[in-house]
Amino acid sequence: MNNIVLFASGSGTNAENIALFFKDHPDTEVSYILSNRPDAGVLERAKKLNIKTKVFNRDDFFSTCRIHDFLISASPDLIVLAGFLWLVPSNIVEAFPRRIVNIHPALLPNYGGKGMYGHHVHEAVLRNGEKESGITIHYVNDRYDDGDIIFQAHCPIEADDSPESLASRIHQLEYEHYPRVIAEVLAQQKQNRD
């Protein structure tokens, strides 16, 4: 059984989409959703999906081994960041090499790095007159948006795009591709083990 642990900071639409995708997969389950915000909408979504949750603070994540040790005991095959904005500490990255993935709402290596998330990304893409944007799914290392790229999907920039209209199209790419790519990464892991 493949075990996924999700991290999310916000409303949790991507996390919910991933959980629903795997709901009927007999060999994969989302065992936990972790959030650094006790008021995050993702926690309510997790409750409706009957997925266990854990809320943690900055100290738990960066100054102690609480989350590291929790993850070791949860033994995930894959840790999936779905709208999680904190940099993953190196002790967690080292404990789960090439087993942590993230999705970024732009075509990395452009428009990545600290502070480049959500509307900040879309505003920068439009301000610079780009012709296209998209999503990047990548492995996580100890630097923002810097790990090896697994998959990218592109979408054109329309002449009348606003950050909101671009974000809407980017979200559609995320919903379409992220669960499928996660399944492919898990299948590749299994192939490497066998």
Results as ranks from 00 to 15, higher is better:
residue 184 E to D: 13
residue 64 T to K: 11
residue 112 G to D: 03
residue 158 E to T: 10
residue 51 I to H: 05
residue 19 A to G: 06
residue 21 F to E: 07
residue 149 I to V: 11
residue 107 L to E: 02
residue 71 L to H: 01
residue 124 A to K: 15
residue 120 H to T: 12
residue 159 A to H: 12
residue 49 L to P: 07
residue 180 R to T: 15
residue 60 D to E: 11
residue 109 P to I: 04
residue 122 H to L: 06
residue 35 S to E: 08
residue 119 H to V: 14
residue 50 N to P: 08
residue 54 K to C: 12
residue 181 V to E: 10
residue 133 S to P: 00
residue 137 I to M: 04
residue 49 L to C: 05
residue 175 Y to T: 03
residue 72 I to N: 09
residue 171 H to D: 12
residue 69 D to L: 01
residue 156 P to C: 01
residue 36 N to W: 07
residue 170 I to H: 07
residue 153 A to G: 02
residue 38 P to I: 11
residue 11 S to A: 14
residue 53 T to A: 09
residue 124 A to W: 10
residue 81 L to A: 02
residue 2 N to R: 07
residue 134 G to H: 03
residue 92 I to M: 04
residue 67 I to A: 02
residue 112 G to A: 04
residue 64 T to N: 11
residue 71 L to C: 01
residue 82 A to W: 09
residue 128 N to Q: 13
residue 4 I to H: 01
residue 96 F to W: 05
residue 159 A to R: 10
residue 84 F to M: 04
residue 189 Q to T: 03
residue 172 Q to R: 13
residue 46 A to M: 03
residue 48 K to W: 09
residue 45 R to T: 03
residue 30 V to I: 08
residue 42 V to Y: 09
residue 174 E to D: 06
residue 56 F to M: 00
residue 111 Y to Q: 00
residue 133 S to G: 06
residue 92 I to C: 01
residue 37 R to S: 14
residue 180 R to I: 15
residue 141 N to L: 09
residue 41 G to E: 06
residue 89 P to R: 03
residue 3 N to P: 07
residue 104 H to T: 06
residue 21 F to M: 04
residue 35 S to W: 09
residue 109 P to R: 09
residue 95 A to M: 04
residue 66 R to K: 15
residue 156 P to H: 00
residue 18 I to Q: 08
residue 17 N to C: 15
residue 47 K to T: 13
residue 17 N to T: 15
residue 11 S to P: 05
residue 129 G to W: 00
residue 36 N to P: 01
residue 161 D to Y: 03
residue 112 G to I: 00
residue 76 P to T: 02
residue 68 H to R: 14
residue 57 N to C: 11
residue 73 S to D: 15
residue 46 A to R: 07
residue 22 F to P: 00
residue 40 A to Y: 07
residue 187 A to L: 03
residue 180 R to Q: 15
residue 186 L to D: 03
residue 183 A to W: 00
residue 16 E to Q: 14
residue 167 A to C: 11
residue 33 I to L: 15
residue 152 Q to E: 09
residue 1 M to C: 08
residue 32 Y to D: 07
residue 36 N to K: 06
residue 14 N to E: 06
residue 161 D to N: 03
